[in-house]
Design a binder for these strands. Sequence first.
RNA 1: GGAGCAGUAGCUCAGUUGGUUAGAGUAUCGGCCUGUCACGCCGAGGGUCACGGGUUCGAGUCCCGUCUGCUCCGCCA
Length: 590
Amino acid sequence: MRSHSCGLLNESLINEPVILCGWVNRRRDHGGVIFIDLRDRSGLVQVVFNPELADAFALAEQVRNEYVLRITGTVRRRPEGTENPELATGQVEVVGQYIDILNAAETPPFQLDEAHVGEDIRLRYRYIDLRRPEMQARLQLRANITRLLRQFLDEQGFLEIETPMLTKATPEGARDYLVPSRTHPGQFFALPQSPQLFKQLLMMSGMERYYQIVRCFRDEDLRADRQPEFTQLDIEMSFIDESIIKNMMESMMRQLFKEVKGEQLPEPFPSMSYEDAMLRYGTDKPDLRVPLVLTEVSDLMAEVKFKVFAKPANDPEGRVAALCVPRLKISRKQIDDYTDFVAIYGAKGLAYIKVNDITAGRNGLQSPILKFLPDKAIEGLLERTKADSGSLIFFGADKAKIVNEALGALRLKIAEDLKLIQKNWKPLWIVDYPMFEWDETEKRWVSLHHPFTAPNVQDIETLEANPGACLSRAYDMVLNGEEIGGGSIRIHRPEMQSAVFRVLGIGEQEASEKFGFLLDALKYGCPPHGGIAFGLDRLVMLMCGASSIRDVIAFPKTQTASCLLTSAPSPASPAQLRELHIRLRSNNPH
RNA sequence: GGAGCAGUAGCUCAGUUGGUUAGAGUAUCGGCCUGUCACGCCGAGGGUCACGGGUUCGAGUCCCGUCUGCUCCGCCA
């Protein structure tokens, strides 16, 4: 059908006959000469039609944008002075001799070269949107990434193994997508939130090294970096500890970035405890490209006569922290805007101190709260925050959770506003996560990672005596403020797994109903094992500089989890519902 | 469940204090044009101002509700 790809034609093919297939990117009709830019996946090439070849010229007059053509012609050097250095093929052109119109095309609903088409219209006509070179490049990059990841893991002796999509609903974690069973009235499959249990079972099956690029489903509300179905690179290994898998995963990422981006990632990746991350960045996925940090000042504020600070400073669950921004000149209005911004995270206010002259002590400072602060607190504050003349110090004082989220977000917001974000790659590991977190609404311990994560203690007594103090053997890989991967060494002893279920308040009966197969499997010879899962969409998004994972997914969903292209979801027919033993509570859902 | 932003020509947008026939760019269609590459020039067509209600002599503009898209909180690892 075709002999060459449009974007690959060059001077080495001059005088060669070629047959090209592609879309009309643009037609320029000069009356006596017609240019058609023909586009395929490889790029563009200009085809020229002259009136001497009357048949081809007549067809060239008829074609319109996005027509699909097969063109026969000859490559030639462009006449001197008409070369186009913007185009990879710009030194040559094809003299068109024959045109087959393989298919006509209606006028597209949007122009492919329009920079700011609404995302809804792009999604509705995604097949046209994906023709744009930018989107082609993103999907190409995604394919390159998955190929290199597979190649690396294959070389390390991993087996790619598939796991079920129709599986069992699990308690804990996200809301499940349910699939009704026709053959079991009233019963449901769940789509996997991740293949977690299956990959552990594969370790118990003696597979030793497993990976899979696998779709996962979570029925939760969407974000720019969250889709209801997303792709994980899922990995599990037997007979390992943290250092083995972390080192291997680091090498994988270093190799990936080197080959795809030509970038050298650090060796080794820095490592930070969860506690340090929360103290210094207010989050467990710190963006190390931002040179601002939070400063703990609870102890300095414990004695001050300012209730807003003193109360959280003396509350074991409270925190007073400072965010010092050097050389920050902003208006009252901008401070108000930042106050509104932190209110999103539940902060009731945003106290601040302007440092006009660091050498003048208290007199060099300017703040509505200055009068509440004794000299000692001010001294300590200025020293710890390394404030200088021109600095602005913001404060968060509340429950630690609120302070962390508010100041953590403010840190990123200010960095963005002030263009303080460095242009490089900053990966790191977050380790030493707490095993459990106390859920105040449910009045019980919940897993910070998941219930199969091994605790950092050997004996069950220590775990059960003080669950809140127990750390886990989990590790997250963070890149530029995005959590791109997370994993852990798993529990491989049935007694420990039962103990963790007990701490989580999962009774013996429930445990055996929901996870009986896992507890059984642990009894039949389970190797020590652990693994990790990477959010592939997020990784690709970062690597191609996109701001949403929708831009690296061929057919993504909107924020309300619908597909504008297919109009899914849509009502099921009464016959389908009857077969599935389902009756709707309302007959008029639309 | 909640907060914010947006919805006007196929697309991207403007539309002043509520006031005559709702505009621009681009795309489309027609004509002219032999070296353009965002070709150029001339002309034409194209509007349920998201939807529903209200206020008013009069609503794209003001008010209420609904829907859709995006960002975020909650939710989610």
